[in-house]
Amino acid sequence: MEPVNNEVTERQAVRVMRPESPRQAVSFAKRFRAPYIAGGTWLQPSCERDRQWPVHLVALNPDWPGFRGIQETEDGLSIGALTTLDELARHPLTALYLPPLSGLINRVAGPGVRHLGTVGGNLLAGGDLSALALALGTEVDVVEGKGSNRRPLARWFQDRPASDLLRSVTVPDCRGWGVSVEKLGYRERFSPTRATVACVHAGLQVQLAVCGEGGPGRLMVTEAMLRDEGIRELTDLAIVVDSELETLGWHDTRLRLAVRRMLESGLMEVTRGA
């Protein structure tokens, strides 16, 4: 990882660079150790809170090819990283591929923030969409210094240089899969996530992921157990889920209990009839 730029300034002195291309954006980000900004709904509150702003910001342009919009590809559904959360929610392809999202989206941020905030920003902040994206086995298309590159989101989360620029994510063709997603917030709307839990029944196997106070993660150990032993033994499942969550960084035992129950409920939902 490159060292984070320690130089900070006030809001009024921030310089916003407007690169002409994604490659140029990556170049600026590296050279000035500057963060990218798209909707800015996550960056601004944290800078306001600390009263410290980066000296430079690299503005991303939704008009760059592939950065905004939703389309079907042969690999599944491709979603531009600069697509706003509201555009995602309203798009007909979302209803086709990801019906559970319509139930979740009203509980992701507030309506005003959803008009500004982007899919990429939500994923990078470990927001509500990250659990769903991880459980679906989403892949990311990333612009780097040398070119662009495609890899699983889960792997990218583990080792992500700050200058990596997310162009789009590709969700596999999940039509016909069982998908469930559930959020626990502090209140009914406009709450940071305490725990968002996604369960996907992808044909033969079950895929599980969480995000929230313990951070985003795919529950690989639990998935393996389910693959090997089926999902009938829920008491065993509880032990495995609990220990895997703790390993991932979920240290509040009470919250783990809630996540476990949400997972169990989600599993029942997605495997019903399977």
Partner: peptide, 22 residues
């Protein structure tokens, strides 16, 4: 920080918190 809506305006017809628009 975009969390109360008291500064809400329409931006191209969509309601947004004006404190989050730069």
């Amino acid at each position: 920080v975009g969390r109360c809506g008291a500064c809400q305006v329409l931006l191209d017809g969509r309601a947004v918190p004006s404190c989050l628009v730069m």
